[in-house]
């Protein structure tokens, strides 16, 4: 991503360069959003609803989303189910193994903030956003497949609003 990172900072200074950059951004965002591959990461009850959403009646494949078993090949991690302290370390490892750009969707009450296991529970992490950054929260216990599809569409909307500048750094100072 080296050239793409530095391109907007230099190209925008040319008159008319902004049009080039926004078109490039549009192309990159469209290609990333239309083919989000999600990591098969079902922990608990919401995993069955995720599997049902990927099956025949509510289909994920029509949005271009297909499940991958390995985090190295996935863009989107759908944390479906309760996160316990024992599993939290492994979730962080999996999140680190995914390649940029990556997105996280917290599905269900347990992943958002602990859900029904908030009170009187010693082993549950109250919300997965305590260890990894989350883009979209979907409440419900478990959320209906339609809610999950809307959550996936919201991730797509978020991707369409991205700019290359978010991934780039500032222009490095000229070494005198």
């Amino acid at each position: 991503m080296g050239i793409i990172e530095k391109a907007p900072l230099y190209v925008e200074k040319i008159p008319g360069g902004g049009i080039v950059i926004t078109s490039a951004e549009g192309l990159l965002n469209w290609s990333r959003a239309s083919s989000l591959w999600y990591l098969l990461f079902g922990l608990a009850c919401c995993a069955i609803e995720m599997m049902a959403t990927g099956a025949s009646r509510y289909d994920f494949d029509r949005l271009g989303m297909f499940f991958r078993a390995s985090p190295r090949q996935a863009d989107l991690m759908m944390v479906c189910g309760t996160v316990t302290h024992k599993m939290a370390k492994r979730i962080k490892i999996l999140y680190d193994q995914m390649a940029e750009p990556k997105y996280v969707l917290a599905m269900g009450g347990c992943a958002c903030d602990g859900g029904p296991f908030y009170y009187d529970c010693y082993s549950v992490l109250k919300g997965v956003d305590k260890i990894i950054p989350v883009d979209v929260y979907i409440p419900g216990c478990p959320p209906r497949p339609e809610s999950l599809l809307q959550g996936a569409l919201k991730v797509r909307e978020k991707i369409y609003r991205e700019k290359i500048k978010d991934f780039a750094g500032d222009i490095p100072p000229k070494q005198a």
């Binding site: 316990t84 492994r90 009187d120 529970c121 082993s123």
Partner: peptide, 14 residues
């Protein structure tokens, strides 16, 4: 095992 231990038995006492 124990990666999904949600202590449901402890919750039941309350």
């Amino acid at each position: 095992i124990g990666y999904l231990h949600r202590s449901i038995e402890k919750i039941a006492e309350n």
